[in-house]
Design a protein around this nucleic acid. Sequence first.
DNA 1: CAACAGATTCTCT
DNA 2: GAGAATCTGTTGT
Length: 164
Amino acid sequence: MHRVEETLLAGDATDVAPDLLGMYLALGDRLVQIVEVEAYTMDDPASHSFRGRTPRNSVMFGPPGVLYVYLVYGIHHCVNLVTGPEGDGQAVLIRGGIVAGLARTAADGPGKLARALGVDLSWNGRSAAVFRAGRAPAMGVIATPRIGISRAVDWPRRWVATGL
DNA sequence: CAACAGATTCTCT
DNA sequence: GAGAATCTGTTGT
């Protein structure tokens, strides 16, 4: 298992997102294998960066490899990984994963994943550590329709890993 | 300053 | 399948 270079995260979110599947994210003392992701870019009406830079989404316009954490519905936190060239407003939402030592259902949604990892708003802007282990032979990748949003729902920007 | 929609999840039905 | 919990950024008065 070795750390992923930051240059790898500087690619477009739509390219980086599926590549992140099967990789590991080290947050604090927890390790999570990424199973479900979704890419968000400035041209996406469902993206926080769509209407330009605001105090909340400013991290999305910073350098790649940084965490963008926000609160949705006043209750749940969502964890994103900033990607793309600095200033491009791109990020990959980590929608689901497998947390070492926890049940597989503990992080099977964006909000649940943040909770399982103990991530809250104070993590916004911190740089993330992404690791890659040997490729899982049985892993497959499928693209699926987006859910939980109301705009541009059909855009093929959500990916799920199978066989993990 | 007030109103409102929202990258969700859980609890019923 | 529908509704509540709960708060922030954005937009309109």
